[in-house]
Write a protein that binds this DNA or RNA. Sequence first.
RNA 1: AUUACAAACUAGUCUAUCGCGUUUCGGUUUUACCGGAAUGAGGAAAGUCCGAACAACGCAGAGCAAGCACACCACCUAACGGGUGGGGUUCUUUGGAAACAAAGAAUACAGCAAGUGUCGCAGAAAAUUACCGCCCCGAGCGUAGCGAGGGGUAAGGGUGAAAACGUGCGGUAAGAGCGCACGCUACCUCAUGGUAACAUGAAGUAGGGAUAAACCUUGUGGGUUGAAAUGCCACGUAUACCGAUGGGACCGGUUUUCCGGUCAGGGGGCUGCUCGUCCUUGUCGGGGGGUAGGCAGAUAGAGCCUGUCAGCGAUGGCAGGUCGAGAUAAAUGAUAGACAUCGCGCAAGCGAUACAGAAUUCGGCUUAUCGGUUUGUAAAAAAU
RNA 2: GGUCCCGUAGUUCAAUUGGAUAGAAUACCAGAUUCCGGUUCUGGAGGUUACAGGUUCGAACCCUGUCGGGAUCA
Length: 134
Amino acid sequence: MYDNTLDLKQTFKKGERLKRRKLIKRMFNREGESVAAYPLRIIWLEVELDSNYPAQFALSVPKRAFPKAAHRNVIRRRLREAYRLNKHNLYEFVEKQEKQYAIMVLYTAKEALTFQQIEAKMKVLFKKFVKRNQ
RNA sequence: AUUACAAACUAGUCUAUCGCGUUUCGGUUUUACCGGAAUGAGGAAAGUCCGAACAACGCAGAGCAAGCACACCACCUAACGGGUGGGGUUCUUUGGAAACAAAGAAUACAGCAAGUGUCGCAGAAAAUUACCGCCCCGAGCGUAGCGAGGGGUAAGGGUGAAAACGUGCGGUAAGAGCGCACGCUACCUCAUGGUAACAUGAAGUAGGGAUAAACCUUGUGGGUUGAAAUGCCACGUAUACCGAUGGGACCGGUUUUCCGGUCAGGGGGCUGCUCGUCCUUGUCGGGGGGUAGGCAGAUAGAGCCUGUCAGCGAUGGCAGGUCGAGAUAAAUGAUAGACAUCGCGCAAGCGAUACAGAAUUCGGCUUAUCGGUUUGUAAAAAAU
RNA sequence: GGUCCCGUAGUUCAAUUGGAUAGAAUACCAGAUUCCGGUUCUGGAGGUUACAGGUUCGAACCCUGUCGGGAUCA
């Protein structure tokens, strides 16, 4: 079912993006589980997706913390890069389980952090996620 | 060459690695990936304050009303509440005794002399007023006078943001634009200049406090709603249930109920009323279920650049060149390094490089903005 | 993306449709009462009426522009 060459790539295609509003609603309402590694929080849900990827990913930066759209864009792009460069850890684990996940990452800090800080936290977050699902 | 202000332009550059959207070419394990190429945020993309394009509501159907917007003149513009030029008024500075002149800035600048309203406190009085005062007549007291009452007057008085044209002379019982001279303001007529607003001059009439960002009047212009508009395709579904209220007339079936048709009536059709017209058929209210995917709208336009001509200017004409994002939980990036500019420092080095991110598209306005360049004005200093 | 509404003491609200020191409750401070605290009573402080202009003799109120907050629409 999965292409094994995928997990070596650092791409981030359209099929890997979580877009269905219904799924996002379900995650927030009842079914999603979550774990935090400040300033990040991950929410996930085991579902059957309409694509071949092991997971679909979305992110959110609250307007309350960053009222200017340009500032939100900077944070969003750093988060996305951090996910893109480290997602292979996640994919390996998920493929062994032969499951699919919808994943959402929230940014909860009030200040803008550097890429290095965000990337480190993202790795911690993935470790926690793996631990919870074993 | 410095500082301040105003206007216009600009909005750091390069390399490496890993990526993203759109278009396109090729490939494959053929619908999803891989590889290549091209291209990919702004002057404000912002606020949503105006104006349009475009779309829907029946080519908005007709009329009236309400409501809204605008308000010196001319021009520019697709249009505008925007812009340019001009006029009036007010303020500031300089000169001057003053009148005024020059420069600069501001200006929602139609009409309180159409009507109505309001103008606290103070003051006699806040719009046809009379407290003190001034003057005349004067019953009576009874004699240098006092004075009930009647009348005239608006010169003087204090108040107030504002006091009933100003100054002088005449005039009068006292006074008053009551008259005269000079001046001020408004209206109107004529003449001159100007496309016009308006300015100047002359004659006449008048002297009416302020407020229309008070109601309002006059003139001009507006139908309403907006891309979450709108059209098509796909998926999916149920008007279940509750409350209130009604079931008119005629015809047919049937004949107690009930069913069907026509008319009336009710409801709706993107502000109100009347008319017209269309849709709907128990009505109104509560409440429930489903879908929230795709395509079009949607990117060549009142477009941009250069030159030239017309115009004081906004702007326009002509010629040549050019194609410069099109996403949809939303691409246009992340990381590392070098250079550039500015600040501090002898130096090594350290710090700073703004405001800010397309969402149908244009024209304006307003607001945010580290710096850099150019032009103009003013000031001080130096040189000639 | 569009449309609409609201900004007054630290907080919750007033202020006769323009008229004078912007008022009340609560919270705060001080004093009294109490052995102490609370309650109660008395007094005090606290406001550039979001900001900036304008109209007016006079603005919380009227007008314009900013800033901030909120609601709503398939």
